[in-house]
Every structure is written in structure tokens, then in C-alpha cells.
């Protein structure tokens, strides 16, 4: 711990739109250390997704700077420093599940044997072991999103950025995947940035919860979790968990108080 992998200093981002400029991010300062699980939570329009996209070099900040592994986001992307999971699965209908997971691996030039090994591994992680040969349309929406997570895990980047990945899943699958994600995180020591609008999800998963508020998008509170790293699902009934959830809820209310 202590070693900073993602560092944002005075980040400002303004979108120029036909209706005038939109101030999406204002004065964002944040340090994310190696091995942390950081959740971004806030109402829509608070810039949580925009901030995640800026880290991934999918948006360019207007002022301030972000460094990822000591590089600019663009360099970090080229160095394949992170995997990104989008809100929708975005699987290609003409490729099987295996073929879809192979896609980034092909682009990154992994050998055939290496691809097969990695695909088998990540399919097991997301509990789709027997579905590798199926086409996306043969799977439920939830299974499709699991496949897309497997795809982001496949090339084993140090940083995993996830933009509301479980938003479309039913609660039972969601719980299982949250557990699986924690197991994976413990095993691989990855640094995870996770956008969500579910308070229990944020509290259950994170070591650090970043509460954001809109107009302009900014960070209102950074809550360090007091929960242990080892987290069975039952921990959600503990007083510690409930206190943290309460703190997050207060942070959200604070950001909203003026409108």
C-alpha cells in the first residue's frame, strides 16, 4: 500500500455542446493506491463515468492532470495498463463467447495457446465454463455482461475500470459476481475503479468510496472503508457496514442539498 497508481490533480473537464459548455468535472483531486478497490458513487450527471473515462484516456481533461502508473492516460492505455468494462456487454454477434474474449487478445498479439489458456481461466471466473462455444444471442443479458467482464479480465491488466458493470444483472447473480470480484481482486492484487449507483454495492466492494455530486461534477467526500478485506456476504448486516452506508448516504444528500 501507499504506492500511488492513479493520481488526479486539479482535474477540470468541460464539454462544448450545442447548448453551450457543460462543466462535467471541477477541481478533482484523487489518489488511488495499488491494490485499492475504489467506488465512484453519485447521481447521474455527477461526472463519475466521465472521470473513469478520463483515467482510461477515452476523454481528455481540459485542465489539471491525471497520471496512471506514472504515465499519461494515453501512454498507459497503449501500455495496456487497464481493462475497461462498459455498461452494455457489446459482444459481437458473429463471434462465439470464446471468440469475443479472444478479441482483445488477438489485437494485443497473444499466441493461440496463450489465448486458449486465458479464455478457459476467465470463463471459469465468471461461471460461464460451459458457454464458451455459444453465440451471444443464446445467452441471457446477465450472462452476456459476465462474458464482457471475462473479456476485460482476459489480458490481465493491473488496473480494472468498471462502469456500472452489474447494473443490468439480477440481484442474485449480482451478489455472486460481487463476491467473485472480491475473490479475484484478493487473488490478483488488481487496482479497481468501479462506478456504481448502488450504495450497498459500493460499501460491500470498496476500500475507498468516492462520493460525487453534479453541476459541476465534483468529489464531495472520500470515505475510507473500515471493513476488513475478507468480506463474506453476511458482513452487510454488520453495524459497521450499516454505519458506512449511512455515511455514504449522507455524503450524497450533502451534494444534493442546494437543488
Amino acid at each position: 500500500m501507499g504506492d500511488t497508481v492513479i493520481k488526479a490533480q486539479g482535474v477540470d473537464l468541460t464539454f462544448q455542446t450545442a447548448d453551450g459548455p457543460i462543466h462535467a468535472l471541477k477541481d478533482v483531486d484523487l489518489d488511488i493506491n495499488r491494490g485499492e478497490f475504489v467506488s465512484f458513487i453519485g447521481p447521474s450527471g455527477c461526472g463519475k463515468t466521465t472521470f473513469l473515462r478520463s483515467i482510461a484516456a477515452l476523454e481528455t481533461v481540459t485542465a489539471g492532470q491525471i497520471s496512471v502508473n506514472g504515465m499519461t492516460p494515453d501512454q498507459a492505455r497503449k501500455a495496456r495498463a487497464y481493462g475497461y468494462v462498459f455498461q452494455a456487454p457489446g459482444l459481437y454477434p458473429w463471434r462465439t463467447i470464446k471468440g469475443n474474449i479472444a478479441l482483445p487478445l488477438e489485437i494485443m498479439g497473444f499466441s493461440r495457446e496463450e489465448r486458449a489458456k486465458r479464455i478457459a481461466h476467465v470463463l471459469e471466473l465468471v461461471e460461464l465454463k460451459n458457454f464458451g462455444g455459444k453465440f451471444p444471442w443464446q445467452l441471457s443479458g446477465g450472462m452476456q455482461q459476465r462474458a464482457s467482464i471475462a473479456r476485460a479480465l482476459a489480458f490481465d491488466a493491473d488496473i480494472l475500470l468498471m462502469d456500472e458493470p452489474f447494473g443490468a444483472l439480477d440481484e442474485i447473480v449480482r451478489d455472486r459476481l460481487n463476491e467473485a470480484l472480491l475473490t479475484l481482486w484478493a487473488k490478483t492484487q488488481k487496482t479497481i475503479g468501479f462506478v456504481t449507483h448502488s450504495i450497498p454495492e459500493a460499501v460491500y466492494l470498496s476500500t475507498k468510496i468516492v462520493v460525487m455530486s453534479p453541476r459541476p461534477g465534483r468529489i464531495t467526500r472520500v470515505i475510507e472503508s473500515t471493513l476488513p478485506r475478507e468480506r463474506p456476504l453476511e458482513i452487510r448486516d454488520s453495524p459497521e457496514f450499516i454505519a458506512l452506508a449511512h455515511e455514504v448516504r449522507e455524503g450524497l444528500r450533502e451534494g444534493h442539498s442546494y437543488d
Binding site: 477515452l58 492505455r77 497503449k78 481493462g83 475497461y84 452494455a88 457489446g90 489485437i107
Partner: peptide
């Protein structure tokens, strides 16, 4: 946009 971003995130 999302499919193109995906490709971009893999530096395709």
C-alpha cells in the same frame, strides 16, 4: 460509440 471506445481501450 461504445464499440469504438472498446476498440480504443484495447489500443486497436
Amino acid at each position: 460509440g461504445m464499440q469504438l471506445d472498446q476498440m480504443k481501450s484495447w489500443s486497436a
